[in-house]
């Protein structure tokens, strides 16, 4: 149990640094701004209680905001993601799976379930982020385009990371 918490804490800081110093510095275009830190929130234990989930989303978002000088953007968007996650898992995850308390992942949940789950969560995050960043509905089309493109890149990155680093966890 202790090692599992440590692993999640390590994952958080590793992904945060990766996001701040590598992915956030790619400067592809202003429209594509992927976020790899979402992987941490997606792979939190499936039976984690709602209140800690919300607080983790909020505080994790604030930490990312501190590095990006985007006070409030990530904390709000990640809070929304975590809130959506609670209900998504409540409605679409099988009772047995929730009882088992696994970390959601490609291998533990099956490809179809995990890809759909990631796609929904990623689009919620990027849509809300785009609208929070533009602070209103003046640039609707631009925001939706940005959310779709960033979301697609985030989804790709998250699945890639799942395949590369989270694969062996089924055996342990």
């Amino acid at each position: 149990m202790g090692s599992r918490i440590l692993r999640h804490i390590f994952a958080f800081f590793a992904l945060l640094l990766l996001q701040v110093f590598v992915i956030g510095k790619l400067n592809i275009t202003p429209l594509i701004q992927p976020n790899i830190l979402l992987l941490f929130f997606l792979t939190l234990p499936i039976n984690l209680k709602p209140v800690p989930t919300l607080f983790l989303g909020f505080i994790g978002g604030l930490l990312l905001d501190m590095f990006n000088n985007s006070a409030g953007f990530n904390s709000t968007a990640l809070l929304l993601l975590c809130y959506a996650r609670i209900y998504y898992i409540r409605n679409f995850a099988h009772f047995d799976v929730v009882e088992s308390g696994l970390d959601p992942g490609l291998s533990s949940m099956g490809y179809r379930w995990f890809i759909l789950y990631t796609a929904v969560m990623v689009s919620i995050y990027h849509l809300s982020y785009a609208f929070i960043e533009s602070f209103g509905f003046r640039y609707i089309l631009e925001n939706i385009l940005s959310a779709v493109l960033s979301g697609a890149v985030s989804l790709g990155l998250i699945l890639l990371f799942q395949l590369l680093f989270y694969r062996t966890k089924r055996n342990t």
Binding site: F58, G61, A71, G72, L80, I132
Partner: peptide, 8 residues
């Protein structure tokens, strides 16, 4: 959410 919005 309210707190986040306040910061924002």
């Amino acid at each position: 959410l309210v707190f986040s919005f306040f910061i924002l």
